[in-house]
Amino acid sequence: TFVALYDYESRTETDLSFKKGERLQIVNNTEGDWWLAHSLTTGQTGYIPSNYVAP
């Protein structure tokens, strides 16, 4: 799992909003700078900017 370093507000319907400190499970990280992730807090799935999270 990864932890959010910053808050992120989604800009498209495929993005995932999250708050700093939220735990995220990475589903697919082969898309370059945008990873498909599942929030362990909200249960939602969407794309996140990879530079906003850390292991």
Results as ranks from 00 to 15, higher is better:
1 T>V: 15
1 T>P: 07
1 T>L: 15
1 T>Y: 15
1 T>F: 15
2 F>W: 15
2 F>I: 05
2 F>E: 01
3 V>C: 05
3 V>I: 14
3 V>P: 01
3 V>L: 09
4 A>D: 00
4 A>V: 08
4 A>F: 01
5 L>Q: 05
5 L>K: 06
5 L>N: 03
5 L>S: 03
6 Y>T: 06
6 Y>G: 05
7 D>Q: 04
7 D>F: 03
7 D>G: 05
8 Y>N: 02
8 Y>E: 00
8 Y>I: 01
8 Y>Q: 01
8 Y>C: 04
8 Y>D: 00
8 Y>K: 02
9 E>I: 13
9 E>Q: 12
9 E>T: 13
9 E>L: 10
9 E>C: 09
9 E>P: 05
10 S>W: 04
10 S>V: 04
10 S>E: 05
10 S>P: 09
11 R>W: 08
11 R>S: 13
12 T>E: 09
12 T>G: 14
12 T>F: 14
13 E>D: 14
13 E>Y: 08
13 E>L: 11
13 E>P: 14
14 T>C: 12
14 T>W: 15
15 D>I: 10
15 D>S: 09
15 D>M: 10
16 L>N: 02
16 L>G: 03
16 L>V: 06
16 L>I: 12
16 L>S: 03
16 L>F: 13
17 S>F: 05
17 S>H: 05
18 F>G: 00
18 F>S: 01
18 F>Q: 00
18 F>K: 00
18 F>L: 07
19 K>H: 09
19 K>Q: 10
19 K>P: 01
19 K>L: 09
20 K>P: 02
20 K>W: 04
20 K>G: 04
20 K>A: 13
20 K>E: 08
20 K>F: 05
20 K>S: 08
21 G>W: 05
21 G>Q: 02
21 G>M: 02
21 G>S: 03
21 G>H: 05
22 E>V: 01
22 E>G: 01
23 R>S: 14
23 R>E: 15
23 R>V: 15
23 R>Y: 15
24 L>M: 08
24 L>T: 00
24 L>W: 03
24 L>Q: 00
25 Q>K: 10
25 Q>A: 09
26 I>F: 04
26 I>R: 05
26 I>A: 07
26 I>M: 05
27 V>W: 14
27 V>M: 14
27 V>A: 07
28 N>K: 10
29 N>M: 15
29 N>P: 14
29 N>Q: 14
29 N>R: 13
29 N>C: 10
30 T>E: 11
30 T>K: 12
30 T>A: 13
30 T>R: 11
30 T>H: 12
31 E>H: 14
31 E>V: 12
31 E>M: 15
31 E>G: 14
31 E>K: 14
31 E>P: 12
32 G>T: 13
32 G>Q: 13
32 G>M: 11
32 G>L: 11
32 G>K: 14
33 D>K: 13
33 D>V: 11
33 D>E: 13
33 D>L: 12
33 D>M: 12
33 D>H: 13
33 D>W: 11
34 W>T: 08
34 W>Q: 08
35 W>R: 02
35 W>F: 06
35 W>K: 04
36 L>K: 05
36 L>G: 01
36 L>A: 03
36 L>H: 05
37 A>S: 03
37 A>D: 00
37 A>C: 02
38 H>E: 11
38 H>A: 08
38 H>L: 15
39 S>V: 03
39 S>K: 06
39 S>A: 04
39 S>E: 01
40 L>H: 07
40 L>G: 03
40 L>A: 07
40 L>S: 05
41 T>L: 14
41 T>G: 07
41 T>F: 09
42 T>G: 04
42 T>I: 01
42 T>P: 01
42 T>E: 01
43 G>Y: 06
43 G>N: 09
43 G>C: 07
43 G>W: 05
43 G>H: 11
43 G>M: 07
44 Q>E: 10
44 Q>T: 06
44 Q>W: 08
44 Q>D: 08
44 Q>H: 11
45 T>C: 09
46 G>D: 00
47 Y>K: 06
47 Y>E: 03
47 Y>R: 09
47 Y>L: 11
47 Y>D: 02
47 Y>P: 01
48 I>D: 00
48 I>T: 01
48 I>G: 00
48 I>Q: 00
48 I>L: 05
48 I>K: 00
49 P>D: 06
49 P>E: 02
49 P>Y: 06
50 S>H: 08
50 S>Q: 06
50 S>L: 04
50 S>K: 14
50 S>R: 11
51 N>D: 12
51 N>A: 14
51 N>P: 05
52 Y>G: 06
53 V>N: 03
53 V>G: 03
53 V>A: 06
53 V>K: 02
54 A>P: 05
55 P>L: 13
55 P>D: 08
55 P>T: 09
55 P>Y: 10
55 P>G: 07
